[in-house]
Design a protein around this nucleic acid. Structure first.
Lengths: 222, 222
DNA sequence: TAATATAGCTGACCTTCGGTCATTTACCAA
DNA sequence: TTGGTAAATGACCGAAGGTCAGCTATATTA
């Protein structure tokens, strides 16, 4: 549908300066973001992305070495979006329960987020160059650092304890994204016993209490 | 290499009885297991599996509807292997720390285990029939039930508390399998800051203390 | 303004993948 | 010995990620 033309009419057909190249890469990434939300991970195809971005497939490969690199770049953006949403929610003092709830809800709010995060493993291990991997790791580390800071303030914990808390909650929420197939299985009309089994792994019923136990443990100095 | 012939010379070229079909399916699955450990998830190809199993590709599809179904079947087997190893380790009374350590070590002992589990999401959501999904879910539920029982005995917790504990540890260990890219990144010779970032998510340093915090919380009645 | 050089862009093409199905043939029963 | 049945086969298909020789938009120069 929308044939590019994001910012202004200032985009020439060929990106010759570094700034233009950066802008074009970002434009592709914006299209990729929207397309990903529609297609999901497995169905995300480079040919279709090219079509939607209004460029030839080969052009994509001038801006991204592989499909995985596109998804990795998407991941970096999504984590920063997560951070922003989380920090907004942190405004005002929260008790531990509200904190945990916010962490959970923020992760769930953007369906694309957990979809990408839960597949990082397959993405980064294969088919991303060392350089791009390092670059994205640094970006992720920086974003996390900001999250740690905000969390420390809200939780009134020393920085290292706050970082430990966030890392633990990240483990939990990722496990949740793997095992909790609730939403995806809803529509399959499963037998009662199978449904009960799936429900016993609903992330809400596991993430929240255990996240609280972890914070309690950290507060009490293990 | 080894061209089938698992049990005896009793395998005819065509599997006509139900027992023979089951045996052939299992033989393929055994080859798949070995091949998977060599190839990893992404590189696991049906054509290569057929070659190694000594059958035509079409034959695979008489025994498995899709590639994903093969991997799902593999998962069911791997979880039961995990259970066995875990239960062996549970012999004798363990304190909470040893229990957590055993859970962790057992998960790490078989590299194929976390590789498969951490991708179940992508596997089951797409491309497995409702029937096969139900079948495997039931098998997984049964295996987990046995794990719960054993854990309840070792932890001296009521069954429901033990189940809650295992589910929480499962979340943690899965999160770990996602975020802890330590081993995979070892060989990339990363810069120090990136390496430090990766190390901060090493599953050992996060899984163990937080698993203990969770158990402590459960013991104290939340 | 016209000619030239540079490099961004293109899409036909390659390989490989998961999956299908008309055909072949191993096996058993009559 | 001789069908009849169905397990096994592998050529084939569409779609995927990725490549690259050639095309052309643009900046530079005269």
């Amino acid at each position: 549908m929308s044939t590019a033309a994001p910012t202004a009419s200032a985009m020439p057909r060929r990106a010759r300066t570094q700034a233009q190249k950066t802008a074009r890469r970002q434009a592709i990434l914006d299209v990729a973001d929207a397309y990903f939300r529609e297609s999901g991970f497995e169905a995300f195809s480079m040919a279709e992305l090219a079509k939607r971005a209004g460029v030839a497939k080969g052009t994509l490969y001038l801006y991204f070495e592989t499909r995985e690199e596109v998804l990795l770049a998407l991941y970096v953006e999504l984590l920063d979006d997560w951070r922003q949403a989380f920090c907004v929610g942190l405004a005002g003092a929260l008790d531990d329960e509200a904190f945990v709830r916010l962490f959970f809800d923020t992760s769930r709010a953007d369906p694309a987020f957990l979809t990408v995060v839960s597949r990082m493993d397959s993405v980064i291990e294969h088919n991303v160059s060392r350089e791009k991997l390092i670059e994205s790791k640094r970006a992720l580390a920086a974003t996390l650092e900001r999250i740690f800071d905000e969390a420390a303030g809200s939780l009134r914990l020393p920085p290292e304890k706050a970082a430990e808390t966030i890392r633990a909650l990240a483990f939990l929420v990722l496990g949740a994204s793997q095992l909790d197939k609730g939403p995806a299985l809803e529509e399959m009309n499963l037998p009662e016993d199978v449904r009960a089994f799936a429900t016993s792994f609903s992330s809400e019923s596991i993430f929240l209490p255990n996240a609280l136990r972890i914070i309690a443990g950290i507060r009490s100095g293990n």
